[in-house]
Every structure is written in structure tokens, then in C-alpha cells.
């Protein structure tokens, strides 16, 4: 069926509006980050900066600023803040990589086993683990905090990784269980007929089949982990366990009205997830909508 010209025009308008809505805040963030404090404080506001001004990036990355004091922030130490910002980005990336790897290791084998292997208790376990998805993380934070103190894992990346693993492995396992069940079973059957053990068949046949699913899941787990806020706010207060999400809220308290510096920090902080979303959007989309099918 061919849509009428009016319908097509309407659709184009809707698509332009969606694109503007999706990118608008990011675009405003970028524009704000290259504005001077004068542009930002002008009345009425200047959406478009008078001239390119990279002071905010110089402050947040290099720890330098042209004026003696940072506007909107008396007694701020930009050098210390810049180094804390760099450290928090590094910490976010490290913890995200570690947690994603751990989640994948645990959930790939479990998702495969629950969808393809017959053993007593498998179904019960599947529903018990998936059932934990209805438990919001904030009901667990106090107990987790106490456990981590007792285990001396407070303020360690290992502690954070373990908590993220417990929060994300059930979801990852569930998505991979569905993914694995939807894959054609014939290759594995053939491998078994040819004399492979189940483990060999998994490693050499099923695992390669699951590659695109694993890539999609890795992207989703990375995005979820990178965005964690409440857990690291509680479980980490050292530089190596303060992710950029937590640090940026500290900046909000410090640089209240210095929008260029806040925006520059925000723009840098969204770069890693934005790149993942753009590069892997096809995989992510398939996994998300497939998950709701």
C-alpha cells in the first residue's frame, strides 16, 4: 500500500521533530560547553555563542582557566577537579569493562544451559533468577553496604563489580536464554551426532552462533553499568570507585550556575555511551525489541 503524499509529508515532519527532540538536549549541551560565561548569563539567553570559547574544556580537562576565579564557584580548585574528572572517567570505563566481562561470562553459559540442556531444577532456577528482576536495587543497598563493609570490599572496584553483576546477570541470562532458544538447533544436533560432547558442541558450534546476541548484550550491559548512579554513590567514595555519574552530580553542587563547565563535563561523559549506541544501535535495537516480542 502506498501512503498518500499528505501522509508522507506528515511522517517527514514527525521524523524531524523526533530527531530534534532526541538530539536537542545534547546539542544544547554542546553549544553551552563552547559558550563563554557572558553568553550564558546574557538576558535574554544566547542559544548560539558569540564566539567559540573552549575555556570550559580547558578547565575540565586541563585544569586551567583564564580568569582568576571560576564564575559561579568561589574557591573552586579547577586543577584538582580536572584530575578528579579524568580519574572518574577512567574508573567508569574500567568498572564498566570489568562488570560487562563478568556478566557475560556468567550469563552466556547459564543462558545456554537453561535453554538447551535438560536437568532437574533448571526451570525452577530460571524463574527464581528471572523473578529477582522485580526487586528494585534500592531495596538492597543498605544490606549490600553492610555486607561490603564486612567483606572489606567497600570502596573497591571488585565490590562494585560484584553488585553490578548481581543486578545485571539475571537480565542478561534471560535475554540470552531467549536468544539461544530462537537459534536453529540443527548445528548442535549434528555436532552431537558426530560424536562431540555437549561441552564441545557448545564451545565450537553454539557459542559462534550466539555471537551477534552476545555483542548486543555486551552493548546493553555496558550502557546499563555506565549509567549506574545510586549504587556507586553508596558503595564507593575513593577516586578509583567514583564513576563519572557521581562526580558530575558533585560538580552540579559546586559549579551551580557555571553552565559551560557543567555542560563540558556532561558532553565528555556522554561520549562513550553515545559512541556505543551509534555503533551498535542495530544490535541493541534487535535485542530490546526481540526481548519484548
Amino acid at each position: 500500500m502506498k501512503p498518500s503524499p499528505a501522509a508522507r509529508a506528515l511522517r517527514t515532519i514527525v521524523i524531524v521533530v523526533i530527531a530534534a527532540w532526541s538530539l536537542g538536549p545534547v546539542a544544547i549541551g554542546v553549544l553551552t560547553s563552547i559558550s563563554s560565561q557572558n553568553d550564558v548569563q546574557a538576558v535574554p539567553a544566547r542559544w548560539w555563542p558569540h564566539q567559540l570559547n573552549l575555556d570550559a574544556y580547558r578547565a575540565i580537562v586541563g585544569g586551567v582557566h583564564s580568569a582568576g576565579t571560576v564564575a559561579g564557584c568561589v574557591g573552586c580548585n579547577t586543577a584538582a577537579d580536572a584530575s578528579a574528572f579524568g580519574q572518574s572517567l577512567l574508573s567508569s570505563v574500567e568498572v564498566t569493562a570489568e562488570a560487562t566481562l563478568a556478566t557475560l561470562l556468567v550469563s552466556v553459559v547459564a543462558g545456554y544451559a537453561l535453554s538447551r540442556l535438560r536437568f532437574r531444577g533448571g526451570k525452577v532456577l530460571l524463574w527464581a533468577v528471572v523473578g529477582t528482576l522485580v526487586i528494585p536495587l534500592f531495596t538492597l543497598v543498605v544490606a549490600l553496604f553492610r555486607m561490603m563493609v564486612e567483606l572489606h570490599l567497600i570502596n573497591t572496584q571488585l565490590g562494585l563489580v560484584l553488585v553490578y553483576l548481581s543486578a545485571e546477570a539475571p537480565l542478561a541470562m534471560w535475554l540470552l536464554y531467549n536468544h539461544c532458544r530462537d537459534l536453529p538447533p540443527e548445528p548442535e544436533e549434528a555436532a552431537l551426532m558426530d560424536g562431540c560432547t555437549r561441552w564441545q558442541a557448545f564451545r565450537m558450534v553454539v557459542l559462534p552462533q550466539m555471537r551477534s546476541g552476545i555483542a548486543a548484550l555486551a552493548a546493553i550491559v555496558m550502557l546499563l553499568t555506565y549509567g549506574q548512579f545510586l549504587i556507586p554513590l553508596l558503595l564507593g567514595s575513593t577516586p578509583s570507585t567514583t564513576p563519572v555519574t557521581v562526580l558530575i552530580t558533585e560538580f552540579v553542587g559546586k559549579y551551580t550556575t557555571n553552565y559551560p563547565i557543567l555542560a563540558a563535563a556532561g558532553v565528555i561523559a556522554v561520549l562513550p555511551p553515545a559512541i556505543i549506541a551509534l555503533l551498535l544501535n542495530r544490535h541493541i535495537r534487535g535485542m530490546l525489541s526481540g526481548a519484548t516480542g
Binding site: S22, T249, A263, A274
Partner: peptide, 17 residues
């Protein structure tokens, strides 16, 4: 999917102005 992919805390910071 960009808005979904970004950490909501950071999105909030971008919206503040």
C-alpha cells in the same frame, strides 16, 4: 535510542540550563 543510552544523571545535567 540516544536518549535511552545516556546515563540519566548526565542527561539531567545537560537539561539543567
Amino acid at each position: 535510542i540516544m536518549p535511552w543510552a545516556l546515563p540519566s544523571v548526565v542527561s539531567g545535567v545537560l537539561w539543567r540550563r
